[in-house]
Nucleic acid binder design. Structure first.
Lengths: 247, 247
DNA sequence: CGTTTCGTTGAAGAGTGTCAAGGCCAGTGG
DNA sequence: CCACTGGCCTTGACACTCTTCAACGAAACG
């Protein structure tokens, strides 16, 4: 039995990946039942994080990867002079903490933007399963590599796109991720503030607000504070591709 | 004996990692002699790439990771509408191709900026050694994670720094990498064009040129085309930290 | 119900981008 | 060896996007 006295953990529940409907996000496909059974051991416990609370902070010792069961979080890094850069927003089924492997210390802050529950996967267990099941080792390397590829896309956005293109890409990305989780792709709630969106996209919050208003004025979206409805996804795609809408 | 008919490869040489002075960059420390011996098998062959030629291109099937023996390369991604974003510059001892693990296809272009020689490490062998030597599996996961952390830093740069800060950070980073390879930290040759620097830093080539001229005028550096000498590293550091130099 | 945080909008200004012209340098061929 | 060529770099003037500063309104929270 794992250590269990940590606050906010729920170690008593018997975790079952095979019955989790987020399985496809976390666990490799095409395993034998025996192997899937082995994966159940990955998750040591669950942990709840309240809105605004950190899952971990830069400098914390790295001990586990976390899989989000439900909720929403942001990752961010800070420069020495205090500038914050949001590096990612995370939603259910995604893994957090991959940055910590490098130096056995986390290099970014992760904070919940709404009440969140995660599966705690001690890194030791990942290593143990990796050593035992080749399929899983490949799977985990792919997860790491996929994060590298994702960041390439973000660098393209930060390095060469205008404010409107960035926001259009951002909205479409969220839309697609919501859809793949069974939610509406055309209507959702932004869990982050304008400042956080701005930080993620390399813009100021006022710019984010203005561009959203412009999109709204052009009938691409309907915005009401945090509530967003995508009216003309094709129009947004056109903007991402560099060509301003031609209505 | 590995397949050897591929153009530009040098399979006949018996590769020896243990005698390579770049060892510390590629190979984990603290292995037994037996284990180090096993690592020799990682490198299947060497390959030469002429200046301007690609090592691989986005869409190419992923088969190997490459370790740079000597030379200089850039990685870049292209958006659907043709914008190029340089995602990294690579120098000796560094590994290339980690992006390909995700989808078994490379997702970026890698092109040599000067005549280059790389060690070809088939991914299959990495998996084989990973399965055999736990130390190496951890080492390789750390390499992947380190790349994620590096990109966080770049996102901070692209998302929240001004042109001068970006270039100062860029020069200091190069300086440090040259130094750790035994070259001068204060005097080096830029192998890439202004346009490539600009792409990497999210700036236009004219801006890069202007900022370098400004640095030169402020006696922080001496520039002569591709030749750069860092005169006042402390001043550059001050700029990165947000405070303009206070001569 | 007051307080605080967050979001919107306007006006003015700074920082980069764009466009254009000219100079430097390496490589090529006469 | 020299002139020519094309790629790369520098610099200026101007345009434009985004930021900054500021004020106000709306929603969230205790």
């Amino acid at each position: 039995m794992p250590s269990s006295s940590v606050l906010n953990t729920i170690p008593s529940l018997r975790v079952s990946c095979s019955h989790c409907n987020l399985r496809e996000h976390c666990v490799p496909l095409g395993l034998s039942l025996k192997e899937i059974d082995r994966l159940e051991d990955l998750v040591a416990s669950r942990k709840r994080i309240r809105r605004g609370e950190p899952l971990f902070r830069a400098g914390d010792r790295f001990e586990a990867i976390y899989a989000i069961r439900l909720g929403f979080l942001k990752s961010s890094v800070m420069s020495s002079d205090g500038r914050e850069q949001v590096t990612n927003f995370h939603m259910s089924g995604e893994l957090i903490g991959l940055d910590g492997i490098a130096n056995e210390v986390h290099s970014c802050d992760v904070v919940a933007l709404e009440d969140t529950e995660v599966c705690v996967i001690p890194y030791e267990r990942i290593l143990a399963v990796s050593a035992e099941i080749d399929e899983y080792n490949i799977h985990f390397q792919k997860i790491l590599s996929r994060e590298i590829v994702r960041q390439h896309g973000l660098m393209l956005l930060l390095g060469s796109m205008h404010a409107e293109e960035r926001l259009a890409a951002f909205l479409l990305n969220l839309s697609q991720r919501f859809e793949s989780r069974g939610y509406s792709r055309s209507e959702f709630v932004l869990r982050m503030t304008r400042a956080e969106i701005g930080s993620y996209l390399g813009l100021k919050l006022e710019t984010v607000s203005r561009v959203l208003s412009r999109f709204s004025h052009d009938n691409l979206i309907v915005v009401n504070q945090k509530h967003v409805q995508i009216v003309n996804a094709e129009g947004l795609r056109a903007i991402v591709s560099g060509q301003p809408a031609d209505v």
